[in-house]
Computed example of a mutant assay.
Amino acid sequence: MAAAIALSERGRGRTGDNPNVGCIIVKDGIIVGRGWTQPGGRPHAEAMALEQAGKATKGADIYCTMEPCAHESKRGPTCVDLVKEAAPARVIVATLDIDERTRRQGIDRLGESGISVSVGVLEQQAHRAMAGFFTRMEKGRPHVTLKLAMSLDGCIAMADGTSKWITGKRARAHAHLERARCDAILVGAGTVVADNPGLDVRLTGLEGRSPQPVVLGKAEVADHWTEISEPEAIAELDQTSWLLVEGGAATAASFLKADLVDRLLLYRAPIMIGGGLQAIGDIGLGSLDVAHGQWVRLDRRDLGQDMLELYERAA
């Protein structure tokens, strides 16, 4: 299942409103099929893995990061029907589908056909890998990651606005990888005016995975940009389940104040600026007590001389 979850990450930021599912088929201890949701949402992970495995699927074990879909679609047959036809011995599912059109119907139909079904294997990890889909379904908006690159004293630029470069090459490369894993990327109008950012992915081989650029506020941008007037308007972004917010300080504060941030990426460079521009503006915190218990650290690692810290909202 861990391998299936890793496969699901390949589709992150490319499947629109569809979940980025991963699927692995195992026969006699050998992987005979692998799949992940393809760009635009089709083929589904199960369909891709089943096609690869062919007749070897009979009597095999299928590992899916989400319950196979059971609702009809003009875009192709349901994954439940494909799996039933392939006649595996077992289907192991990480998490149920949150879409009521499929929820429990997929596993029930498989069980009724005589296929052994298990649910809940590495469920938390699967939820995290497909958080964009779950956030969209539960909250009606994209999953939001706020990225900040700052000095040790919490500055994102010098007092005159100079910010190139606070972090080193490895940290910046990692930030571009994060861009490649999102549907859209957002900055404030002030950042557009000051920096004229491209917001593309500049990693060899991943240039085609640049996210849709979005600006918060009024600014002169190219025609392919999307403009929104307030943070809550991210709910209206089309085909967007994963959103990366890159600031600056006022934009970061507005998303935190609106309680729209699900994940924090903090890149810290071993430098002191002093008197520079702070990473985050006023978020309307009324009491220090309220600030505690809001975030859980998931990861901390070195990227060259810089430090990356990853946090997600506490449950």
Rank of each mutant, 00 (worst) to 15 (best):
residue 44 H to P: 10
residue 123 E to H: 10
residue 22 G to L: 01
residue 55 K to G: 10
residue 120 G to T: 09
residue 72 E to N: 11
residue 228 I to D: 01
residue 169 K to W: 12
residue 170 R to W: 13
residue 208 G to E: 13
residue 313 R to W: 08
residue 30 I to M: 15
residue 230 E to C: 14
residue 239 Q to A: 15
residue 22 G to T: 04
residue 225 W to M: 12
residue 227 E to K: 15
residue 120 G to Y: 07
residue 132 G to V: 02
residue 61 D to Y: 07
residue 90 R to D: 03
residue 148 L to T: 09
residue 18 N to A: 14
residue 108 D to T: 13
residue 173 A to Q: 11
residue 51 E to P: 10
residue 50 L to I: 12
residue 52 Q to G: 03
residue 242 W to V: 11
residue 230 E to R: 15
residue 9 E to S: 13
residue 55 K to A: 15
residue 11 G to A: 04
residue 171 A to R: 01
residue 77 P to C: 00
residue 130 M to R: 06
residue 267 Y to D: 04
residue 77 P to H: 00
residue 100 E to C: 09
residue 100 E to D: 12
residue 70 A to G: 09
residue 160 D to K: 10
residue 285 L to M: 10
residue 165 W to P: 08
residue 264 L to Y: 15
residue 282 D to N: 08
residue 221 V to G: 06
residue 124 Q to Y: 11
residue 267 Y to S: 05
residue 101 R to Q: 10
residue 229 S to G: 09
residue 283 I to S: 07
residue 5 I to C: 03
residue 287 S to F: 12
residue 277 L to F: 10
residue 15 T to E: 02
residue 94 A to F: 02
residue 273 I to R: 04
residue 281 G to A: 07
residue 152 L to A: 08
residue 196 N to M: 08
residue 73 S to P: 02
residue 83 V to K: 04
residue 273 I to H: 02
residue 265 L to Q: 12
residue 290 V to G: 12
residue 22 G to Q: 01
residue 142 P to K: 05
residue 188 G to S: 05
residue 241 S to G: 15
residue 67 E to I: 07
residue 194 A to C: 01
residue 7 L to V: 01
residue 66 M to R: 15
residue 136 R to E: 05
residue 115 I to A: 03
residue 237 L to M: 05
residue 76 G to T: 04
residue 236 E to A: 15
residue 256 L to V: 03
residue 224 H to E: 13
residue 109 R to N: 12
residue 227 E to N: 13
residue 159 A to F: 10
residue 48 M to I: 12
residue 242 W to R: 13
residue 136 R to L: 13
residue 114 G to D: 13
residue 161 G to E: 02
residue 138 E to D: 14
residue 124 Q to N: 11
residue 211 P to M: 04
residue 41 G to C: 02
residue 208 G to V: 10
residue 28 D to G: 04
residue 113 S to I: 05
residue 171 A to W: 01
residue 199 L to S: 06
residue 254 S to W: 06
residue 229 S to H: 11
residue 29 G to W: 02
residue 51 E to N: 14
residue 83 V to Q: 05
residue 177 L to T: 08
residue 234 I to W: 04
residue 164 K to P: 08
residue 68 P to S: 09
residue 280 I to G: 00
residue 241 S to M: 09
residue 89 A to P: 01
residue 24 I to G: 06
residue 54 G to P: 01
residue 24 I to F: 06
residue 238 D to P: 09
residue 251 T to M: 01
residue 116 S to L: 13
residue 1 M to Q: 00
residue 221 V to T: 13
residue 181 R to F: 07
